[in-house]
């Protein structure tokens, strides 16, 4: 660590911080505890998982199989199906949470009375755990005794009388519960971004005769685009990795209709005890996350001037 060279962020700081050579090592000591914890409980397990993905246990014997787990997975129809389910789940979730979050933020940003109150109410689902939220939604759509299902039967029969136990219906319930929980996050982020938009720009646009939609799409949206991208990135990663709602609402059913890749990992890698294959799936999920982030960073990077 002898190459640790201090350079303060500002000239003022330089005077105070590089002054004492005796504190040369201070930043290192400050970082050390965090780094140790992260290395031990984040980095090491991940590397270990990557190693595990190249192993398999058959007939009680531990074997090194190279990339065979990956090859087999990519030939396994139920895994490919779970990837498609993940895609459908994530895309609908991201579209719905980001768009309705922005809409709510626009309304809240008009600062009528009670907006603070609305924000608090809309935010409440976010602090409720996925398992608890899942239990609530599951109970609302219970086929015979569920309140929402019985209302649907009475007032909106075109939606179907057995949502919870049909493939599309079950997925819709899971997505609805996820949006319900995730909406707070995108609303708050959008609101934060909207409040950085200078009021004069919007006003001058409206003086130029732009209507509300034109103002939003041509003036406001370009200004808050970085935030929109952050929201899309974070909600995508969230939806790809989360299993809590699926665990508590459908357990992947009916017939695997709501089994996302993350839930598939839980089922294969944990319940069925196939650690090698489970680890391989987790590596694939990790790769998807990294790809998304790199794509995001490259978009952001290309438009530094934002």
């Amino acid at each position: 660590m002898s190459d640790l060279v201090l350079s303060a962020r500002a000239e003022v700081a330089q005077r105070s911080f590089s002054g004492g050579r005796k504190y040369r090592w201070l930043p290192f000591w400050l970082l050390l505890p965090s780094l140790l914890v992260l290395l031990a409980l984040q980095v090491y397990p991940t590397l270990y998982s990557i190693y595990l993905s190249t192993t398999r246990v058959r007939r009680g014997e531990f074997m090194h199989v190279g990339l065979a787990n990956f090859e087999r997975l990519l030939r396994t129809p139920s895994f490919l199906e779970s990837l498609r389910t993940s895609l459908a789940y994530s895309v609908t979730y991201v579209l719905l949470t980001v768009s309705s979050g922005m809409m709510l933020a626009l309304l809240l940003n008009r600062r009528f009375k009670f907006t603070g109150f609305y924000l608090v109410i809309i935010f409440i689902p976010w602090v409720i755990s996925e398992v608890v939220a899942g239990t609530m939604w599951r109970w609302l759509f219970q086929p015979t005794y569920g309140l929402l299902q019985s209302w649907i039967n009475m007032y909106m029969p075109f939606l179907g009388d057995r949502l919870y136990t049909t493939a599309g219906g079950a997925l819709a319930i899971v997505v609805a519960a996820a949006v319900w929980r995730g909406l707070a996050f995108t609303t708050l982020l959008s609101l934060g971004a909207l409040q950085t938009v200078p009021q004069e720009i919007v006003e001058s646009a409206s003086l130029d005769g732009a209507n509300r939609f034109q103002r939003f799409f041509h003036v406001i949206l370009p200004l808050i685009r970085p935030t929109v991208l952050v929201m899309v990135l974070l909600t995508s990663i969230q939806s790809i990795n989360s299993v809590g709602l699926i665990v508590s609402i459908t357990r992947g059913g009916p017939g695997g209709a709501t089994r996302t890749a993350a839930y598939y990992l839980l089922q294969v890698g944990w319940e069925q005890g196939d650690f090698g294959t489970g680890a391989a799936i987790s590596v694939i999920l990790f790769a998807i996350n990294v790809t998304l982030t790199i794509a995001y960073l490259s978009i952001i990077g290309r438009h530094r001037d934002w």
Partner: peptide, 13 residues
Amino acid sequence: TLLADAIVKLITD
């Protein structure tokens, strides 16, 4: 699991 899922799929579709 595979058998049960296949049968349930056949029921729901």
